[in-house]
Amino acid sequence: MLDLLSYGATGWGDELLQGAGMTLLVAVLAYLIGLGAGCLTAAAKLSGPLPLRWLAATYTTVVRGVPALLVIWLLFYGGSGLVGWMAGLFGYGGRVELSAFAVGVASVGLVSGAYAAEVIRGAVQAVPKGQLEAARALGMHRLLILRRILAPQALRYALPGLGNVWQMTLKDTTLVSVVSLAELMRQAYVASGTTRQPFLFYLVAALIYLVITTLSETGFRALSRRADRGVRRATA
């Protein structure tokens, strides 16, 4: 039975590993999009003009309120039309197509961004206002305050939450398998359909996910420790 997992033409080992690579690629790209969208949305929520604030609130409420699977189906069926319409606004009249990969990255990124926005907003709000006022009183430049005062502290507060968003994003990539993107879950699905060994292949897939989530959790913990350096804690 284990030869089914071997590397090469007869085994599924190489397909599973390629799938894991695709999973990581989708997750990382989606997470980056999510961080970007999250930053923007948080900024809009905290200090944007009313229409932008309203838009940001709608985005986070709606996307966090519907299943990621539904977002993927919606973008899979309607994404091309939407992007075509937006391209039309910028004067591009041609046909725009979205591959399963683009749909996967965009929809998981969209979901990731809604959750990241809430984490980032909370972190920014957690930085004491007095510090910003003090920095301003010292005559610090805006960008300098952002770089030296706000960003490092907000990042520290946001890291645990952003770690959770990463785990969620990674798990959400499994849902992209429904649109036949050859990521890990899809490869396990195809392999189990052909070999009729679903238990084996889903178990292997589960183990690979387990390894990825555990490793990345360790990574985020290390980041947190680094961000916490210089912060004194009360010891019990």
């Binding site: 499994t174 679903p198 238990f199 589960a206 996910y209």
Partner: peptide, 15 residues
Amino acid sequence: STPLLVQIFLIFYGA
């Protein structure tokens, strides 16, 4: 640490 979809498939198809 594992995605829900894998858990569902393991229980449904795996079992």
